[in-house]
Amino acid sequence: MITVKNLKKQFGDNVVLDGIDVHVDQGEVLAIIGPSGSGKSTFLRCLNLLEKPDEGLIQIADTKVDVKKMNAKEMHQLRQKTAMVFQHYNLFKNKTALENVTESLIIAKKMKRQEAEDIGKELLVKVGLKDQFYQYPVTLSGGQQQRVGIARALAVKPRAILFDEPTSALDPEWVSEVLQVIKDIAQLKTTMIIVTHEMQFAEEVADRVIFMADGSIVEQNNPKEMFNRPQSPRTQQFLNKIGTGELND
């Protein structure tokens, strides 16, 4: 489903991704954890080319690109295979909740407005926002905004959904409702990659957990093993820190 080979990214002299190899199966839920600055968000952003990697191969479904040689058309094709849910929601502020979901359908997929709105409403109902169709983002709570963000990502029927710390910017009171929506989507066997600081959530929802540090994958395992019997000292140190509540961005 998703295969990444030797993905590298540097910002100036700072090596952010030092040759990442990952494979994700169809329907698999992969959680990526790790300290701030480990490159996990950059990795996610490289997958849909919001950051341009320096080198490496990315294959998602039937689109395969060599990032060094890709052209604009390939970039666009690869991007269309995934959708992203952002830490800061990034909703379109000039659009209603429904328009946020239907915008890409009408503008990029040239779908008829009526058809797009039917899809949009169905998705908003699914994420628990049946009464908020016509509200603008500024009138929504953080949790509601993020749920609109999830509906917007689902609308394009992506082969995989990328979650970039979807609950990090939320007030604690809204975290659980967003996590519940993500769990519901995971139940449908949607391929997902989730970068998160919510360890308990990662343990509950993920099929596999990757621990990243300093631009590399240090360790990967099923959640039970990863959280109960971490192998590498680096992972142990990280999980211990979180356990005592010292982790802070």
Binding site: R79, S104, A155
Partner: peptide, 10 residues
């Protein structure tokens, strides 16, 4: 917001 557009294929 532009990134969000790109991420949904616009």
């Amino acid at each position: 917001q532009v990134e969000a557009c790109l991420s949904v294929g616009m």
